[in-house]
Write a protein that binds this DNA or RNA. Structure first.
Lengths: 147, 147
DNA sequence: TGTCAACTATTGACATGTCAATTATATATC
DNA sequence: GATATATAATTGACATGTCAATAGTTGACA
């Protein structure tokens, strides 16, 4: 069966996540959580809305992961003084350590994925993925409702 | 922030699925179900185990989706005469129609994703995804337990 | 000022996935 | 033939995501 691009993306991502999963568990993180603390580590404190926008994930999912990350001591959640609707999320030292460990492991796993890829191929692969997503974003902007 | 390959894959797949989701719902299918009837349509009747192996998904997830697909009239589930442990899954006419409609829509959405890609680039993109996944499979074969 | 609309986070109900345990059936081995 | 092991599917508990509804807060404007 010749696979569709949709399935190729699914299978590549799925394989990667399956390999990373035990490591996330060892860190005490669920499957969706590393990306959040990695974002906080790279970008500094932010609101839940920022995470939902950046990762294009429902705010409800962020809400629950934030709960879990706070309970685990990876982040702190404070009221944002300037606006009582907002929570200000900040990564803790423990969260920073986990984020660093996560990013190192992620790089190691990517090396497995890219075995046999030349530097040019890696560059091209990465660029294709970026362009593909950007095409969706552009399209969505023009067609907010319908398919 | 320079994105990791892991996040690039996540975001590209995610964007695609978010665009396809309303169409799946319109067909009466959940997010994981189209791939199952597409497989059955392409490969003929099979066991649940085959689907779990092919898609590298937990048999428990297959079990529940099979339930739902049967209730929706997209597939039939019979006892496999040769082995009473096994269920034989067969796509119905309704399932075939849904699979065809799904594949047509999927192709249309992939065209959005690949806008501006030359034929050579499409070929290369597809090949990269296949190689990436194969690298994981090969690695997993050598390292069944540890990371 | 008062009202209406928009924004932020949360909650409930559901789907899809994970893992672990269970049940039932087949197969292998002594 | 009896017993042990492997296989196929199911079920329960949980995480991450969706959608829809809600509560509280802010902002805009008559």
């Amino acid at each position: 069966m010749q696979e569709s691009m949709h399935m190729l993306l699914y299978r590549a991502f799925h394989a990667q996540r399956n390999i990373l999963r035990p490591y996330m568990r060892a860190l005490g993180l669920g499957a969706g959580q590393p990306k959040l603390i990695a974002y906080l580590a790279a970008n500094g404190p932010c609101r839940q809305r920022d995470l939902a926008d950046y990762f294009e994930v429902d705010p409800a999912a962020i809400s629950r992961m934030v709960d879990s990350l706070e309970k685990g001591g990876f982040i702190t959640v404070e009221a944002d003084g300037s606006n009582r609707r907002r929570n200000l999320l900040t990564v803790t030292d423990r969260g920073l350590e986990a984020a660093d460990a996560w990013m190192a492991k992620r790089a190691q796993v990517e090396e497995i994925m890219l075995r046999g890829f030349s530097a040019e191929e890696r560059e091209a692969f990465s660029a294709y993925l970026t362009r593909a997503r950007q095409n969706y974003v552009d399209w969505k902007e023009k067609h907010p409702c319908e398919i």
